[in-house]
Design a protein around this nucleic acid. Structure first.
Lengths: 133, 133
DNA sequence: CAGAATCCTCTAAGATACTG
DNA sequence: CAGTATCTTAGAGGATTCTG
């Protein structure tokens, strides 16, 4: 009654990111990647258009944003809504799955931001100890 | 009384990872990087030696593990405890700050692992729609 | 065992230009 | 506006060798 019952044919062998060949590693990299994390984080507030997103994710190039969005859309984390008007309008928004990811990502991001004073101090201590080298 | 009072000289300008020049971006990359995330995750269970860690983080090379550990130690997330015996023994463990990061990271990792069936299905749908291309 | 040093390869990512 | 295509380069990362 309390059995998990996922992936009937592979019960007892759940996805494990610590295993080299596990497909979850690829997805983890998409969501934690340099631009993936920031893109998901930005979309958590709500739907955004391509260039709005570009402005929020400060520093991302058109190419990388496009590439990042494709990977996230393919993984089912982002939904792309295109209107064939002129000029074109395309909105990106998180899927329910994407919201789950983004929420956890933002918890991590905020924790890191809030830890930066301590991190910067730790770096100074580390660098003096080893003579800036 | 309820003011946050962090970084007295820069109040009102908290670290913001969405800004290109913010130092929190570098730290976020250390912790979400390909090997950083897995290393922190592995250490959450407890202290580990270099080669134990290498076995847990399946696929990491000596060079990358060493490099990753240095970055995490410098950021104050991992503590390195060396015993100058022969053969040498070095233990790595999370600092309190590192535990905070690892906990949130593991929450994300588990969510991704648990979402993989849905992700794989989303990929199939995406790939047929666009003719495997 | 726990790394540092070296060499080499491949690809992530930036810059630029063009298109529907 | 919302991208794609092409070119180029910095650096991530692997393999190997050496050392305290």
């Amino acid at each position: 009654m309390t059995t998990t019952q996922r992936r009937p044919e592979e019960q007892g062998l759940p996805f494990n990111v610590f295993a080299k060949a596990c497909p979850s590693r690829g997805t983890l990299e998409h969501v934690t990647g340099r631009w993936g994390a920031l893109t998901l984080g930005a979309l958590y507030e709500g739907s955004l258009r391509f260039n709005e997103l570009r402005r929020r994710v400060d520093g991302v190039s058109e190419k990388m944003l496009s590439q990042t969005l494709h990977a996230l859309e393919r993984d089912g984390l982002v939904h792309r809504e295109a209107q064939l008007t002129n000029p074109p309008r395309v909105d990106y928004e998180l899927t329910p799955l994407g919201r789950g990811v983004a929420q956890r990502l933002l918890s991590l991001i905020r924790f890191v931001e809030d830890s930066m004073d301590a991190v910067l101090e730790a770096r100074e201590r580390y660098d003096d100890t080893r003579g800036a080298r």
